[in-house]
Design a binder for these strands. Structure first.
Lengths: 361, 361
DNA sequence: TCAAGTTGATAATGCGTTTTATCGTTCCGT
DNA sequence: ACGGAACGATAAAACGCATTATCAACTTGA
């Protein structure tokens, strides 16, 4: 076991009878107006390099270049979660593709201690992200304060998914949930529905807010009256009871956020003896990772996860390339509607019947 | 808008009113016999670092010959392949877990150019892996020469999956395919089978060789005669024809490597009118990512992918901790048999009947 | 013949750490 | 009062390369 030493630039220089600078210039082909090396000298250098098996030390190269071509990937949950596998994976595929294309390597921040089982940007007040030139952030429940601090430290980063800070804006690549939701609503309105309810989780993430905004905007644009009670953010009350109330109120369609209770909705309908989609049209504001307990193909829209991941990396690369790395850049990507057979036109008979039971029109 | 620069050690030193050396010593907690920094100075340094958001530049650390607690992950294919998603993912889960536990961050080498669509360790002769303290290698069709070169450069790495080099051995964490295959064979022998065929791909990867070795060893240990023709490495010939020949020869069970043609075997059996498992027992030497086109539950064995990933990281960490980082360490993990209902005892009648058609016993 | 380019190449500096020998000071025991 | 520890901290070299201003020598044109 002897300590091996790679040949260095000076070794090549010595052998070729030139200076290290010359070697660097020749090897990297950095010959411009003021620096010129005649072809025969170049050949001499290259021959020397070859004969020694010389390869540049990338670490030294990075150090001399002031940038290390490393992009961080930070998730507020485990990066490769076992249960959410289908959630993160497509983002990472996009991130990897873009990084590969742009010649960046990726740093996965796994060491960041997990107090309370979640990841944190700072440990002992130190921002380990700084190890990379910039970072892509990802995760459903980020810590706003940590993100805010990142901004203050002028660290370049891009979020995957729209994020707003109490003070100021940040860069992100997002899916246009609002537009997609509105499009979904238009589809339902066009089918003839006039009373469409919204089912969601009682969270205030940006993505949820976007969907709700799209929901309300669709009503507004058509000048169709919207009862605030038709927006139900699932918390303590019984889902079956709520659906029952909806039906009594003449609701003929429901749009629902995706998530753990999506299957429960279908189940509740079964319990109520509601025929899908004849009695109730069901559309989901996102794509469903799990199969639903039914035989229908759900009407959903596809979140462009892979594209979002790639876009975030590209945005970040652009930030790093320009003078002001703290500039805010935002990209919004469209979602593609996927029409299954879980929606159909409302039965007029049912509507009439329900109107008798429901509130005054 | 001013161009942002990462805070450097000198910035911290200036703010704390000490020398860069002191900062380094405090931050890395390198206080030994001869070097001492009193607690209050330490606090001052740490406070300064915190307030600037300072974190050491890993590139500079590497250059200075120190460790940066970065572990590389290199795959010879895309890290997040779209089609082989189920293949790499479990390894990565294990890698992530272990890295998190051991306080390492991960570098995904995505930048390495893909001539011919595959990844290469060297681009223009440059080995970018050196950015990390060591690396975990992964991928089904590695380039032996590149790996050999890595060894020569004395770069510490661990392969996931057994690998042998023409000259010399390397570190790996592997699954014990040989033992698992042998166990599977014993299971079939115990069921009463005496003529078991092997179906595989015409490749010479270590994992395939291990399985074939286990296959032959099982025959040898029981002193049951093995016709070399019963080992069929699928290349040009028609799978259905081969299975037909097997049956004529009195074969009552087949063990098959997993892979793209696993479903084809079942299909061929259907074509031949072979009843599974009554006419032919079928066992797979690995786990099946895709569902097979049948109603049975396949008898397989589980490759401990997650454990392999974690073991590789732990091995690497151990290597890095010891004096000689080029030492060879190998770990072999057992596979767990998963008995479905695709295997059963041979029908004695059929065996007798076949003996008439087949070769002399 | 001389000023003005052109050519070929280099010296010097910077990149951001780690590491170790060394140095001045204070303290203690006798 | 003095030699020797213990203390606190630093200077300086090393790591291997990239960049750029500069320089000597050689041409060229008038």
């Amino acid at each position: 076991m002897r300590t091996y030493k790679r040949p260095r630039m000076t070794d090549v220089a010595l052998l070729a009878g030139v200076s290290p600078a010359t070697v660097s210039l020749v090897i990297n082909n950095r010959l411009s107006g003021n620096v010129r090396i005649p072809p025969d000298t170049q050949q001499r250098v290259l021959a020397a390099a070859r004969s020694l098996g010389y390869v540049a030390n990338p670490v030294a190269q990075s150090l001399a270049g002031a940038r290390n071509r490393l992009l961080g990937v930070f998730t507020f949950d485990a990066i490769f979660p076992v249960q959410f596998r289908d959630f993160y994976y497509p983002f990472l595929v996009g991130v990897e593709h873009a990084a590969e294309e742009l010649d960046f390597d990726l740093v996965l921040f796994t060491s960041t201690s997990t107090r309370d089982g979640r990841r944190h940007l700072y440990r002992q007040g130190v921002n380990r992200l700084r190890l990379a030139d910039g970072a892509v952030l990802l995760g459903s429940e980020e810590d706003k304060e940590e993100v805010q601090r990142l901004v203050e430290e002028q660290y370049p980063f891009v979020f995957i998914g729209r994020r707003d800070l109490p003070h100021g804006r940040i860069s992100y690549s997002a899916a246009d949930y609002a537009a997609a939701t509105q499009e979904m609503m238009d589809y339902l309105f066009d089918l003839g529905h006039r009373r469409i309810a919204y089912l969601g989780a009682p969270v205030v993430t940006e993505s949820a807010l976007d969907r709700r905004r799209g929901f309300q905007e669709a009503y507004r644009q058509r000048a169709i009256p919207l009862d605030p009670q038709w927006i139900w953010l699932h918390a303590e009350r019984n889902l079956t009871a709520v659906l029952g109330t909806f039906l009594k109120q003449g609701i003929t369609a429901v749009v629902a956020e995706t998530g753990p209770f999506a299957p429960l909705i279908v189940q509740s309908c079964h319990e109520l003896g509601v025929k899908l989609p004849q009695d109730l049209s069901l559309a989901f504001l996102g794509d469903l990772s799990d199969e639903l307990p039914w035989e229908l193909e759900a009407t959903t829209f596809a979140i462009p996860r892979q594209e979002m991941g790639a876009a975030a990396v590209k945005l970040l690369a652009e930030l790093l390339a320009q003078k002001d790395v703290t500039a805010v850049r935002q990209v919004t990507l469209p979602c593609r509607l996927s029409l299954g057979n879980s929606c159909t036109g409302p039965r007029t008979a049912a509507v009439a019947g329900v109107d008798l039971l429901g509130r005054a029109a």
